[in-house]
């Protein structure tokens, strides 16, 4: 069982694409109500469908799930979903910023950009988690989490519905801290708030 030092982490960023929805839903359903680290979800989604995703994630989530507004501050115990057709940046002041810059890795929101900006802003207090997906977005971002001293987790490609994204993250980031199955990711996250 993986242990993490308590109170060290201030930001969790989860990236995923195809095959990640069920995983994220499961994770959100198994977190304790007193979970006190903000979670940012950078998930690929249809650009023109703005409604329904937050609602779908909220059904089983213990914690409130919202799409942040521009310059909204990150709060512990909240889950933030990158809105459709925007990039979501995490800035130094602990605030979000949105952008309509060109797509990166054919994606807007791009997982790489949320990870890179979050890692830069929260340094070693960041946890980056890459889940199932059918492309390579997030690989560079996870490497940045590692470079800035954060903790890196990749969903076990053997378990992921689409292993391309976890594999690409492993290729790019090199040695990551943990390769975990979904249940182990859940145990790990739960260990962060246990005394």
């Amino acid at each position: 069982m993986v242990k993490a030092g308590r109170m060290r982490y201030k930001l969790i960023i989860i990236g995923g694409s195809a095959g990640s929805f069920q995983v994220v839903t499961k994770i959100l359903s198994k977190l304790p109500a007193n979970f006190n680290i903000p979670i940012v979800l950078a998930l690929h989604r249809l650009k023109h469908v703005r409604h329904g995703f937050v609602e779908a994630l909220s059904i089983k989530s213990v914690l409130p799930v919202v799409e942040p507004l521009d310059k909204e501050g990150l709060k512990p115990g909240k889950v933030y979903l990158a809105p459709a057709n925007y990039h979501l940046y995490v800035e130094l002041a602990g605030k979000f910023a949105l952008s309509t810059e060109e797509p990166v890795n054919h994606s807007r929101p791009a997982i790489d950009l949320s990870f890179m900006t979050g890692a830069y802003s929260y340094k070693e207090k960041t946890i980056g988690i890459i889940l199932s997906g059918a492309n390579k977005d997030g690989a560079m971002g996870l490497k940045k989490v590692k470079d800035w001293g954060g903790l890196t987790i990749v969903q076990d490609p053997a378990e992921a519905q689409m292993p391309t994204m976890p594999k690409a993250a492993l290729d790019m980031a090199g040695q990551v801290d943990h390769i975990l199955k979904v249940d182990e990711i859940i145990k790990f996250l739960n260990s962060l708030t246990k005394s």
């Binding site: 703005r50 799409e67 942040p68 507004l69 521009d70 310059k71 909204e72 809105p83 925007y86 949105l98 309509t100």
Partner: peptide
């Protein structure tokens, strides 16, 4: 006055 749907 119109702003983007995630602006405030």
């Amino acid at each position: 006055f119109a702003i983007g749907n995630k602006e405030n």
